[in-house]
């Protein structure tokens, strides 16, 4: 795997923003040109650091939305009371510098050789690292079967909506909208619970490899339900985004 064999020191470096694209009303994808980027693995993240004129420093972590081999892209959701996210979604523009360090992570990563079948569970912006996994699978020609169960509040909150609507061999995308559904909605209409998982998840006997990402309460509830249904805990990988409640 290019880049990972080299034990490269993790240092802060300045990247250039090449594009800021709109995903939803509160979500942007920031594409970056990172000098000397060693490549990354699907599921990894970067730390970013903002500094104001008085020397005040704010640091946050964001999952890499792009696949290995694609330019580094971060998808950021604006939190209403956020200190950093509103700057990234509303102020940052192409040509700006952004200080970051990465890639980071060795647990919540997927390579085609890790196999499957894959179960990806996304709560809100937890879909970001899972999208990197999906794109990596696509780009490598992997035929590992994947089910993505993606929970959002409303249809307008679904990130990468057009991309996820494209039918892809071996990939099933199941959506649930928890707060409001459009007329004629054919997907699920409630929070992910044990019953929903029983309908959607691979049977435990298939020995799935699972990645769960989203707010902490979502991840805890979903991973507990899966383990209770027979999933092996060591094959359920979790990434908790914090937050104050469910999706």
């Amino acid at each position: 795997m290019a880049g990972t064999a080299v034990r490269r020191r993790l240092t802060w470096q300045v990247a250039k923003v090449t594009a800021v694209t709109v995903e939803t009303a509160s979500v942007r994808t920031i594409t970056l040109d990172v000098p000397g980027w060693p490549g990354h693995q699907a599921g990894q993240h970067v730390d970013i650091r903002l500094t104001d004129e008085d020397g005040y420093v704010a640091e946050r972590s964001y999952s890499i939305a792009s696949a290995p081999g694609e330019p580094v892209a971060l998808t950021v959701e604006r939190l209403d009371d956020g200190e950093v996210s509103p700057y990234l979604t509303d102020e940052l523009r192409a040509g700006d510098d952004l200080e970051l360090r990465g890639p980071i992570g060795g647990y919540f990563v997927w390579e085609p050789d890790d196999g499957g079948p894959l179960l990806l569970l996304a709560g809100g912006s937890g879909v970001v690292p899972l999208r990197s996994i999906l794109r990596h699978r696509e780009r490598t020609g992997s035929t590992v079967p994947v089910r993505l169960l993606y929970s959002s509040r409303t249809l307008n909150d679904v990130i990468y909506r057009n991309e996820l609507d494209i039918p892809t061999a071996g990939v099933e995308v199941i959506q649930t909208l928890t707060r409001h559904q459009p007329p004629g909605w054919a997907g699920y209409a409630r929070r992910v619970d044990a019953a929903l998982l029983a309908e959607v998840a691979w049977p435990a006997a298939a020995m799935p490899l699972t990645y769960v990402c989203g707010p902490t309460s979502f991840v805890e509830a979903v991973s507990q339900d899966l383990v209770q249904s027979g999933y092996r805990p060591e094959r359920v990988k979790t990434e908790r985004f914090g937050g104050t409640g469910g999706t």
Binding site: W12, V14, R49, L50, T51, D52, E53, D54, G55, Y56, V57, A58, E83, Y87, E91, L92, D96, D97, L98, E99
Partner: peptide
């Protein structure tokens, strides 16, 4: 107004960012 103590190297300023 800000006593930052001993800061050896300043990070580059992020345009338009302020606490």
């Amino acid at each position: 107004g800000l006593g930052l103590g001993k800061m050896a190297v300043m990070s580059p300023v992020s345009r338009g960012f302020h606490r």
